[in-house]
Lab assay of single mutants.
Amino acid sequence: MTEYKLVVVGAGGVGKSALTIQLIQNHFVDEYDPTIEDSYRKQVVIDGETCLLDILDTAGQEEYSAMRDQYMRTGEGFLCVFAINNTKSFEDIHHYREQIKRVKDSEDVPMVLVGNKCDLPSRTVDTKQAQDLARSYGIPFIETSAKTRQGVDDAFYTLVREIRKHKEKMSKDGKKKKKKSKTKCVIM
């Protein structure tokens, strides 16, 4: 069974824990209790493949930012979460993405942009803004509501699919490099 290491990042209060708990335990946590770091595991079937999701729910508070490099190193894919009623959390996505790329030393890291709290009427981040940002990053965008469960499975499952595509691409690139290195030079 394939294991996928997913990391949920975003500013404090955007609903990272609520999304994760909704996926794992099928219930909505409405009281806000700032996370330092929590880890969850769940076995699911995605596109006919049974897999184990190892999900790291991270601290959004700035005082825990020193811990970010460590979990970013171990993560295979990242859910970059903002709240649709919090423009600052949307603007912060850029910083999370840049930090992930720096730590992973790669421009090509599996990510999904997630606009959470889409059940709320007080939207300050337009869907088109988020779609445009995701398009500019070359990553999928999904709106979710941890409260109603809308888009929750889709967000995590899409990230797994992005990781699969990335692994497939990397193995193809690896095979191309191996083929090239088999060419021999004969000096007579």
Score class of each variant (00 low, 15 high):
L133Y: 12
S136I: 05
R161L: 01
V160N: 02
K128Y: 07
K182W: 01
G138A: 07
I142P: 00
R161V: 03
V152P: 04
Q131T: 07
K178I: 10
T127G: 08
K182I: 04
S145E: 15
R149K: 09
D126P: 02
L159Q: 00
T158W: 05
A134S: 05
V152M: 13
C185S: 14
L159E: 00
A155H: 01
M188R: 14
V186I: 07
A146F: 00
G138C: 01
Q150S: 11
R161H: 10
K177P: 14
K128I: 10
A130G: 06
M188E: 15
Q129T: 09
P140F: 00
F156L: 06
Y157D: 12
S181R: 11
Y137H: 05
K169R: 08
M188V: 05
S136L: 10
M170D: 11
G174I: 09
T158A: 12
I187S: 12
I142G: 00
T158S: 11
S181T: 14
D153K: 10
K176A: 13
K176I: 01
V160H: 04
K177R: 07
D173L: 08
A155D: 00
D126S: 13
V186P: 14
T183N: 13
K176S: 12
C185L: 11
K175A: 11
R149L: 05
D173T: 08
D154W: 03
T127Q: 04
D173V: 02
K177I: 06
T158N: 06
Y157Q: 13
H166Y: 12
K178V: 14
K178W: 05
H166E: 04
I163G: 00
R164V: 13
V125G: 07
R161I: 00
G151V: 11
V152E: 07
S136D: 14
Y157N: 12
T144V: 09
Q129R: 11
K180W: 07
D173A: 04
K175I: 05
D153A: 13
K172L: 08
Q131R: 13
K175S: 12
S136R: 08
I139T: 03
Y157A: 14
I139C: 07
K169W: 03
K178R: 06
G151R: 06
V152S: 07
R135N: 09
K165D: 08
I139Y: 03
D173G: 10
D126V: 10
L159M: 03
Q129S: 11
G174C: 02
G151K: 03
D173Q: 07
K165W: 00
T127K: 05
R135Y: 03
R149F: 09
K167D: 10
K177S: 12
T183M: 04
R164F: 15
D126I: 12
M170W: 11
Y137E: 11
G174Y: 00
R135V: 08
K169D: 15
T127E: 11
T158H: 14
G174A: 05
D154L: 09
Q150F: 07
I142Y: 06
A130K: 02
D132A: 06
C185G: 15
E143D: 12
K167F: 02
V125F: 15
L159W: 00
K165F: 04
K177T: 13
L133R: 08
S145R: 11
V160M: 08
T158V: 03
S145T: 15
T144G: 03
A134V: 03
K180D: 15
T127Y: 15
Y157L: 13
C185D: 15
Y157T: 14
K178S: 14
D153G: 10
R135F: 03
K169S: 10
K176T: 15
K128S: 11
Q129C: 14
M188N: 15
D153Q: 12
K175V: 03
M188P: 15
A130Y: 15
E168H: 11
D126M: 11
K128F: 11
T158P: 01
K178G: 11
R164L: 12
V125R: 06
Q129L: 09
E162Q: 12
I142C: 06
Y137C: 10
R135T: 10
A155W: 01
K175L: 12
K165G: 08
S181Y: 02
R135A: 13
K178E: 15
Y157E: 14
V160G: 03
K128A: 06
V160L: 07
K165E: 11
M188D: 15
K128D: 07
K182Y: 02
K176L: 11
S171G: 15
A134T: 03
T144R: 01
K167V: 02
I139F: 03
K180V: 12
K165P: 00
K176V: 01
A134G: 02
R164W: 08
V160F: 08
R149N: 05
V186G: 14
A155E: 00
R164Y: 09
R164E: 15
I139M: 08
K178H: 11
K167L: 01
Q129K: 10
K176G: 13
K176F: 04
V160I: 10
C185R: 15
D126E: 13
S136Y: 04
